[in-house]
Amino acid sequence: MTDETASTGGAAAGDETGRRGLRIAQDTKRSLTLLSPTLILLILALAFPILVLIVLSFWTQTGMSLTPGFTTENYEAFFQKRIYYMLLLRSIENSAMVAALTVILAYPAAYFVAFRIKRRKVLWLILITLPFWTSYLLRIFAWKVILGYNGVINSGLIQVGLIDEPLTFLLNNRQAVVVTLAHAWAAFAILPIYVSLEKIDRSLLEAAADLGENPLWSFLRVTLPLSLPGVIAAALLVFIPTVGDYVAPKLVGGNNGLMIGNIVQTQFGRGNNWPLGAAISIISMLVITGIVCSFLLLVHQAKRRLA
């Protein structure tokens, strides 16, 4: 940033440059001072623990004692036992479905608030995001109450006389997990989509209309592409955290709905094999990162081809 001022030359300007350079140095120092407590905390309580987890994944555990060393047997175990591999795959599939479901369901609502609501937008936004701020545990649990054997749906349907026996296919499967997570994360998807729709220059849409585009075409060719960043952000914001979710599979998934988070927890609890749990976590994290990166790359390429 200093070279543009340096090129002006002259004694007065040189003095100016010096003062400006000093100011920049001072600025940098102040900014780093302000940032240092946060950075130190995150290095100690985020970066360092992840590093330790990586190291631990190469250790072994016999009984209660950990043996330092460098062995890849935990990683081999992951790929040899189909269960871990399958569970990671299933978690990713579940979360991809959850992300797709939340984005598709949230888009029209976000569109409505962004384009059709003229006044009191804030009120609508608060209304939509409110359920998100209530207890996560209870939002998940609510679905157990709804889908359970003696739950709301079953007892309601019996009461009305539509069924005689409770339906058992509602709870304890993947579908229950997907529906529950899609509900729990819905509000998380709507905000980024709304923000990207709100940012769209309205004159572009008017131009499209003036040029005789019908509303559907102008939506497909103007609004949708311009809101894509919000859609992508929403999908990732839902996808990434839900892959590792522990609560929903545990409460509404039953044995058929287990996900990778449950296996990780087991290794750190009853299973008591921390290095294996660490290896499973590291693999999951790498796979998630890989998926996210290739997804972003694909979107980037698709955009370039269209442009």
Binding site: L35, T38, L39, L42, A45, L46, A47, F48, P49, I50, V52, L53, L56, L236, L237, I240, P241, V243, G244, D245, Y246, G261, V264, Q265, F268, W274, G277, A278, S281, S284, M285, I288
Partner: peptide, 26 residues
């Protein structure tokens, strides 16, 4: 730096939880 501070927003909580557990017990 901004991205680093935002990492906790996108990291699965279970991974943050176990890695902190490992460090604290260590």
């Amino acid at each position: 730096l901004k991205a680093f501070i935002a990492v906790p927003l996108v990291i699965p909580l279970i991974i943050l939880g176990i890695s902190l557990l490992v460090v604290f017990s260590g």
